[in-house]
Amino acid sequence: MSPDKMVYMANQIATFFKSQKEADRVQNVAAHISDFWEPRMRAQLKAYIAGGGAGLDPLVLAAAEQVPEAHLEENVS
């Protein structure tokens, strides 16, 4: 997925949760990404943040820390 598209999708999620109660925001964004993003997408997000995370909403940056590491699987032998 192009970085722009990924940033856009992540920010869309953050935008929704910004309208919800403040206390739950970071946790809810993290939960949404963990529940619906396939490990490849999560790995891409983490790598992108490691590279600076340009354009990502601060809420995504905060939430990403709570998203579990994506275990990219080995080849089937």
Binding site: M1, S2, K5, D35, F36, W37, E38, P39, R40, A70
Partner: peptide, 18 residues
């Protein structure tokens, strides 16, 4: 235990070669 790819994600991943 991990979620899989949704249709648009499959197409993105295909373009990425994975």
């Amino acid at each position: 235990p991990e979620p899989g790819l949704r249709i648009p994600n499959m197409l993105d991943a295909a373009v990425d070669g994975t």
